[in-house]
Design a protein around this nucleic acid. Structure first.
Length: 1018
RNA sequence: GGGCGUAUAGCUCAGUGGUAGAGCACUAUGUUGACAUCGUAGGGGUCGCAAGUUCAAUCCUUGCUACGCCCACCA
């Protein structure tokens, strides 16, 4: 045996760091298994700014459980880690650091600032990766990826260029969600709607040219929650069927303040039932109005814009805004406009129900806010890059419909379809510095001594428009330029990088891409794509590229990376598609859906076979955790307190599908206790000569208790396999938990103690000493160990040690995915091993459940429980050993009787069981059950009788039996009722009827036993 | 307005068309051979409400109520 004695107390901190280092240093997170079936999970890249929070602890644990499980099952399991550059979030962090130092971004050039971000990343970024080690995540660190790495950047550029050439990315002028604080466009998904208390104002817009409404009024009343936008109003819309305004359609009103004449147009958008039925239209500052404006024939380029990037009022192109308003903040402008209209008599007051007049009606307004900047979003007219998400979404929808991607839980499918089917163009350009710079260049912008307009005219292009050139590198752009303008490449230079002798400045787009645009490539960008792109692909970009106005793209858009070595399958080929994606549902649209779109488009296959969505981890009171609420639970604190294994087990046990998890420290503590219990069980095993098993398959066993526990292992493995296949982490955790605690610790170890207490080879002596009861001689064959083994040699204890050691090994393996640290520690403590548990083998018992042994042991468990229960209810001292008789109804067999005898003696303090000499199984020399008061404990197949000459309260025993009888009678009556109902016996499934009959027979027998017991009391 | 989810023991949650389960909490009890971070026994639920389907409903259907989330929209 090992000299590595297990410490008396289990201290998680003492073993965790040690084993993590051991695994990592020995490359055990991804052992070389070139021929093994792959299993792949990508870690959703956490923000480089981030630290490990409780939500990470959840989904990282789930992923690591699956990875460790599949590794144990022999697969080439890859769990790939990495980080996301998190454009906006990271830039904000770095800017905040500058500000804290009295500095600001504007003091630096773009390049300098980006260098600062990289510096910051090197210094404090990646903290989360070390925290992941604390949780025990078995990721392949050698493949750690970063969405801003040069390799990843190449993937991003290629995707952009290819999509552009396929016309799936385009530049467009339209309204975007503009964040005036961050001064960048954001996508629809990054806008969150908040309810805000606001006001609803009404204004008179005078009709021009003396036109009147049907009712004789000379003005139209419009209402708005955003009065300031009236400075850029371009129309008033009324419903085509609205007769109130039919006479003025096509006429004009004169806007107060600016005096702009604007048209009254017909549009379905105007709802006659709302307000006055007339709507002011500001196409440059409202999404609905934009559409109305376009329908009214106003081109995007002609729409008036009255706000600058900071959302301060600026002059419109027609110059009609009075100087007093220019430069006002949008909210100040709102007040100023209301004041001005009120002063000029154009404000229509609102009358409340008490008849009092107010400037405006108070209203709750759904207001869009930027999820990062936290300020009100401004719809703003700009040029941005858009992805044709609708086209990309179609195959991604189909993939889920066809089952190529399975969404778990299934209930999320509808949400996925609903979003995908209504998907809008995705704005991917961001006016930031930190991110993947868009690989687009605009035609010559500096004339110098050369009139580039001549060139444009010669190409038949409008000379006020700069053509766009898109390619992965500037060198490729140079080729495009040269061909397009029919000039040597030397004629051009990039604006930021003046070149001697060149005279045409080409400017690169200054925007970067949405972070999610790059993280959408995670399932393949991390595996070496595009360098190791599968050969059948790569034709698409060049094949469909047709240049157009933007110039011919370079056909060789893919980089020539090193091909995989001969005979070796590339990482990409082996690990794409990934097997499983695990993420919170909160990023289903942001990330998962876009991975599906990009993965299918570029790899011609789904990014993963299964998408598992889990819920949120909430605070104990059910509230969402947030820094502002101060109710954030730090997973590292929980690890410090209870150990990583306990936290992991908690996460698994709480993860049932489709529900959020509420934090519960007591439960984490409970799993720490569970680990302690296992620790102590192993310690017990060790001190009893139980150690490492030598075989993967179950040892040969003859004793019922051993055959039973082997069967329990078989069942537990099956339950675990099923649960993990279904991604039911709670079911898996509960199965192993109950097997270890109830099955193994509470029953098996207790039941084998009598066997282990007998020194091997000295059975006769042992039997003699065990027989210390008042009754003297006990038949040797009644000992627990059962019949003599075939060889006649006593090996009951040896067999039991072998089985116990084997079961313990199976437990360690089954529990390892959930509790990697303690299991690895015990694995080594229990014996010399050829390999570490992390790369050991998942249980393969090669055994079956022995129904006979199972029934036997379960009967004993039931008997022990019944005796204990009776003893407690009757207030008998637990330590007092009682003598008892067992009246059997059937032939139990010698073996089984002796089995039960020892077990009851050890576990229920019942010593020993005598059988009545008048019964079928009686034996000469055994005295009859004494007269007088007795406790009767009915069991299936017989009754245990404990004589207690005046020791117990007969009334109490009577009450106990009566209560039991009542309970059984009730059940029997219910069964009988069902059985006597012809409808049941005729229509119910035969199995159900069969079972009801059997149950009824059981209950009836039990009733008889109880009745007899009561009679015995007199 | 559309969609989704949840309602089961004091708490947090599993679960099944055929007599309702776990963990914690609670009560009683125990220093016996790994473990008091433990053992043993126990109390506690008309499974949100109503109707329907069925021989049988906590489970299936419909409606209702309450709570939560997502999407869209409210000039």
């Amino acid at each position: 045996m090992t000299e590595n004695a297990i410490d008396k107390t289990f201290d998680p901190a003492a073993i965790e760091a040690k084993w993590y280092r051991h695994w990592e240093e020995n490359g055990l997170f991804r052992p070389h298994r070139p021929d093994a079936e792959p299993f792949t999970i990508m870690l959703p890249p956490p923000n480089v700014t981030g630290s490990l929070h409780i939500g990470h602890a959840l989904d990282h644990t789930l992923m690591d459980i699956m990875t460790r499980y599949e590794r144990l099952r022999g697969k080439d399991a890859l769990f790939l880690p990495g980080m996301d550059h998190a454009g906006i979030a990271t830039q904000m962090v770095v800017e905040r650091r500058l500000e804290a130092a009295g500095d600001k971004r504007a003091n630096y050039t773009r390049e300098q600032f980006i260098d600062k971000v990289w510096e910051w990343k090197a210094e404090s970024g990646g903290m989360i990766l070390d925290q992941m080690r604390r949780l025990g995540e078995s990721v392949d660190w050698s493949l750690e990826a970063f969405t801003m790495s040069p390799e990843f950047n190449r993937a991003v550029l290629k995707v952009f260029v290819d999509l552009y050439n396929e016309r799936l990315i385009y530049r467009d002028k339209r309204l975007v969600n503009w964040d005036p604080k961050l001064k960048t466009a954001i996508s629809d998904l990054e806008v969150e709607t908040r309810e805000v208390q606001g006001s609803f104002w009404s204004f008179r817009y005078p009709l021009a040219d003396g036109v009147m409404l049907a009712d004789g009024r000379d003005h139209i009343v419009v209402s708005t929650t955003r009065p300031e936008t009236m400075l850029a109003d371009m129309a008033v819309a009324v419903h085509p069927d609205d007769e109130r305004y039919a006479s003025v359609v096509g006429k004009e009103v004169i806007l107060p303040i600016t005096g702009r004449r604007i048209k009254i147009v017909e549009d379905e958008h105007a709802d006659p039932a709302l307000g006055t039925g007339a709507v002011k239209i500001t196409p440059g500052h409202d999404f609905n109005d934009f559409e109305v404006g376009k329908r009214a024939g106003i081109a995007a380029g002609d729409m008036l814009n009255m706000l600058d990037a900071d959302a301060n009022v600026c002059q419109t192109s027609d110059g009609l805004i009075p100087p007093a308003f220019i430069g006002l903040d949008r909210f100040d402008a709102r007040k100023a406009v209301v004041e001005a209209l009120k002063a000029s008599g154009h404000l229509v007051p609102w009358t409340d129900k008490d008849g009092a007049e107010h400037d405006a009606e108070p209203r709750t307004i759904q207001t869009p806010y930027g999820d990062r900047g936290g300020v009100v979003i401004e719809p703003w007219l700009t040029d941005q890059w858009y992805v044709d998400a609708e086209t990309l979404a179609q195959p991604a929808i189909e993939a889920v419909r066809s089952g190529a991607i399975e969404i778990v839980p299934k209930s999320w499918e509808k949400t996925y379809f609903n979003w995908m089917e209504n998907i809008q163009p995705w704005c991917v350009s961001r006016q930031l510095w930190w991110g993947h710079r868009i690989p687009a260049w605009y035609g010559p912008c500096v004339i110098g001594d050369f009139d580039f307009r001549e060139l444009l005219r010669s190409k038949g292009l409008p000379d006020d428009q700069r053509p766009i050139f898109v390619a992965e590198t500037f060198n490729q752009v140079l080729k495009q330029l040269s061909a397009f303008y029919d000039l040597p490449e030397e004629a051009f230079y990039e604006l930021d990088d003046h070149k001697e002798g060149a005279y045409l400045a080409i400017q690169r787009d200054s925007d970067v891409l949405d972070t999610w645009f790059s993280s959408a490539l995670w399932p393949f960008g991390t595996l070496g794509w595009p360098q190791s792109e599968p050969p059948q692909h790569g034709e698409v970009a060049a094949g469909t590229a047709d240049g157009g106005v933007d110039g011919a793209p370079d056909p060789s858009t893919s980089f020539a990376g090193p091909p995989p070595r001969a005979g070796e399958v590339s990482l990409l080929e082996k690990h794409y598609p990934n097997d499983l994606l695990v993420s919170g549902f909160d990023i289903l649209f942001f990330w998962n859906a876009r991975m599906a779109m990009q993965g299918i488009h570029f790899m011609k296959d789904v990014p993963w076979r299964k998408m598992y969505l889990h819920g949120l981890v909430r605070a104990a009171d059910g509230a969402k955790m947030s820094k502002s609420k101060g109710n954030v639970v730090d997973p590292l604190g929980l690890i410090d307190q209870y150990g990583a294994d306990a936290l992991r087990f908690f996460m698994a046990a709480m993860e049932s599908q489709g529900r959020d998890i509420k934090m519960d420290d007591k439960r984490v503590e409970g799993y720490r206790n569970f680990a302690t219990n296992l620790w102590n069980a192993a310690r017990f095993a060790q001190s009893n000569g139980i150690g490492a098993s030598t075989s993967l398959s179950a040892p040969e066993a003859t004793l019922a208790v051993n055959r039973w526990i082997i069967g329990e292992v078989v069942e537990t493995v099956a339950t675990l396999d099923k649960a993990l296949a279904d991604l039911r982490f709670d079911a898996a955790a509960n199965a192993i938990y109950h097997f270890v605690w109830d099955g193994f610790c509470d029953w098996y170890l207790e039941l084998i103690k009598p066997v282990l207490s007998q020194p091997p080879q000295h059975r006769e002596v042992a039997t003699g000493t065990a027989d210390d009861g008042v009754n003297g001689a006990i038949d040797p064959s009644t000992s627990f160990a059962g019949p003599p083994p075939p060889s006649g040699e006593d090996n009951a204890a040896d067999e039991t040690r072998a089985v116990a050691g084997w079961v313990l090994d199976q437990i360690l393996a089954m529990l390892h995915p959930f509790m990697p640290f303690i299991t690895e520690e015990l694995w080594h403590a229990l014996g010399e091993r050829q390999y570490d548990l992390i790369v050991a083998k998942w249980p393969a018992p090669k055994a079956e459940v022995d129904a006979t042994a199972k029934a036997e042991v379960e009967w004993i468990i039931e008997a022990i429980s019944a005796v204990r229960s009776a003893r407690v209810e009757l207030g008998l001292a637990p330590s007092k050993t009682l003598e008892a008789w067992f009246i059997a109804e059937n032939d139990f067999g010698e073996e089984r009787m002796s089995y039960a005898a020892t077990s009851l003696k050890w576990r229920a303090r019942l010593d020993p069981i005598w059988r009545p000499m008048n019964g079928k199984f009686g034996r000469p020399g055994h005295p009859p059950v004494p007269e007088g008061a007795k406790i009767s404990i009915p069991l299936k197949g017989g009754t245990i009788i404990i004589p207690l000459e005046g020791v117990i309260d007969i009334a109490a025993e009577k009450a106990r039996l009566t209560k039991a009888l009542e309970a059984v009678s009730k059940e029997a009556a219910s069964l009988n009722g069902r059985l006597s109902n012809p409808a049941f016996t005729e229509k119910a499934k035969p199995e159900a009827v069969e079972k009801a009959r059997a149950d009824f027979a059981d209950k009836s027998a039990e009733m008889e036993r109880l009745t007899a017991a009561l009679a015995r009391l007199g």
